[in-house]
Write a protein that binds this DNA or RNA. Structure first.
Lengths: 347, 347
DNA sequence: CTGAAAGCGCTTACAG
DNA sequence: CTGAAAGCGCTTACAG
């Protein structure tokens, strides 16, 4: 019985005599043998690890996505290494472009912060890369995202439909951040279609997309004599922060200020009021990302980069439709599709 | 110039002539050479990867912890592979005990769900393991946690101090879940010290620690004729769910029902009202976990497992002290210590 | 179906 | 300070 035979047993190679297999297996069990994956990977030239790089893992949207990606990877025999850029553009470039970490993974899924097309084309050859979320530059890598312009348009149109006309936007960003740019574009498009002018002074910048930034932006909006009657926040965290400010100021949501977010994170399903938001199909995004990058890896595919559009829907909840905080009438709660066991907490 | 020399340059070995180093470096840059980490790891017998296994990555407490652990690891040249058990006890056992995944990491940090001492002692020898969070069985592995009994005691005592006497607990668990057991113990201890009897019918079970479970438990509590005037939830997610139910029922927090949580996740700093909670020093937990496991790894240390106690504090916010949702007086906001740039969103 | 042998790409005593 | 060589633990054509 040679090493070859043992290896055949361990890797479930079919052409092994049954009794040989049994004897080898017995020895393996007795000795507690575990194959060394490092050696296997070295030989095979494949680590069965993919890297996931997100700006901040504790931002709920990324945590939810990471969980789904880990799960999808596991089903296909892949482990996921997670790294974050901490919202630091330079770190993002280092991690991805200079290949600061030498490659010990077969592919990398990146949710870019501010990567440019130029950055990407400078990238030395290596593991295939897949981009998550919007980017406006030309395709230099595979890419899965929802249509941000259409989503932002739909969110804004919803606010217009419920009779709001002074609509603020929170999350406008300095150049380089494509996501913000596209959501602003949708916001403008909805206004244009409805024939409502966009008041540029209601376009609030947010450097980060955290609750505190949303709270601060809303504070500035409320300080104005002509405060808005609605606000479209470029993500749920901004929206939750903004909501906090509105409520703490003694105003009502949605009566005084209606609020729409973007991402459909868990928090917004249990806030008071619950948050109307754009709900991307995260499950599908995760699956498509993993499938596509594994295709690249296994085929060492040189085909042109592909664009994958994931679906989204507008989840209408109390922040644009209900009456919160006074036990009064409430609209029908939206039920999240992906996790049937969790429903909005309507008593 | 031999392979040896190149290797010396790549690994920053000091005894290399300056001009030799320069020439090698030039060649490396020109050719875009990257060392193959798999080969290095195989030779060194160390992968420089640690695994982090949590129940659910999208539970904010674990996402926040994961972020900190990744950051601490990175400072020490370690990458972090993340896996989750999905709250499945069997998967937990498989992942950890059977070593279902053959070892390609140097250590594993586990936040156990229901691992028993017996489980742990069956574990085949392999990479060192470090446990996060409370467990009541005897030490079979290194372990970092806060004192859950003391923390739960302090949280409950706070509710008693503000004059509540019918205090419910949400998060009681079937046997096997040590965390819940210890928090219940602290809850009881606080009552005993204050001479207040614990009403057993106010001890609410929660299978999972999600918002929806807290919402459901609170729904049951509110349906009673003698509803509680306060509730201690075993984590913030339960508390946020419970809060949602109370507010949606038209009751006030904290006037009608005061609420205390546990974990100090971001969400609770921006909910309306903001959430009083036990705030463990997550930064320190992450650092101590990484430091201790790296010590084990590098020393291949056979010393007895050690217990590390991390500090915590009670963060008092509006859910036990303020007047939410009506623009009235509010108490001074608690400011999180760890992220000075984020403050509670008091306009 | 199984054996003997080469090689994945590094690191590291051992000499010099 | 540098070279020549062995070996980490696997997988995999190549024979048989």
């Amino acid at each position: 019985m040679s090493i070859r035979t043992v290896s055949n047993v361990v890797s479930d190679y079919p052409y092994v005599a049954d009794d040989t297999r049994a004897r080898v297996q017995a020895a393996i069990d007795r000795l507690g043998y575990r194959p060394n994956l490092l050696a296997r990977s070295l030989k095979q030239g494949r680590s069965h690890v993919i890297a996931l790089v997100v700006p901040e893992l504790d931002v709920p949207y990324f945590a939810e996505l990471a969980r789904l990606i880990i799960a999808e990877g596991r089903e296909r025999g892949y482990l996921v290494m997670i790294d974050h850029t901490d919202g630091d553009k330079n770190l993002e470039r280092e991690l991805i472009l200079q290949n600061a970490r030498p490659m010990n993974f077969d592919g990398v899924i990146l949710s870019p912060l501010a990567l440019s097309g130029a950055d990407l084309s400078e990238r030395p050859p290596g593991a295939p890369i897949l981009l998550l979320g919007e980017k406006s530059f030309d395709s230099l890598a595979d890419h899965v995202a929802i249509d941000n312009v259409a989503a932002a348009d739909e969110a804004t149109t919803h606010l217009i439909d419920i009779g709001r006309s002074r609509i603020a936007a929170i999350g406008v960003q300095p150049s380089g951040y494509d996501t913000a740019k596209l959501r602003l574009k949708g916001f403008r498009r909805a206004h244009r279609r409805a024939g409502i002018p966009v008041d540029r002074s209601l376009l609030m910048t947010a450097t980060r997309f955290h609750r505190t930034d949303g709270a601060e932006a809303m504070r500035q909006l409320l300080a104005r004599p002509d405060r808005p009657d609605a606000v479209f926040c470029f993500n749920d965290l901004l929206a939750l922060g903004a909501m906090r400010t509105v409520l703490a100021a003694g105003l009502r949501v949605p009566e005084d200020v209606a609020i729409v977010g973007f991402d459909d994170i868990e928090d917004g399903r249990f806030s008071t009021p619950t948050l109307t938001t754009i709900s991307p199909d995260k499950q599908l995004i995760a699956r498509q990302a993993i499938e596509q990058i594994l295709t690249r890896i296994s085929k060492s595919d040189d085909a042109a980069p592909i664009e994958i559009r994931a679906p989204f829907r507008l989840a209408i909840r109390e922040s644009t439709a209900g009456i919160p905080c006074d036990g009064g009438a409430r609209h029908q709660a939206d039920r999240p599709a992906s996790r049937p066991t969790r429903s909005d907490s309507q008593p």
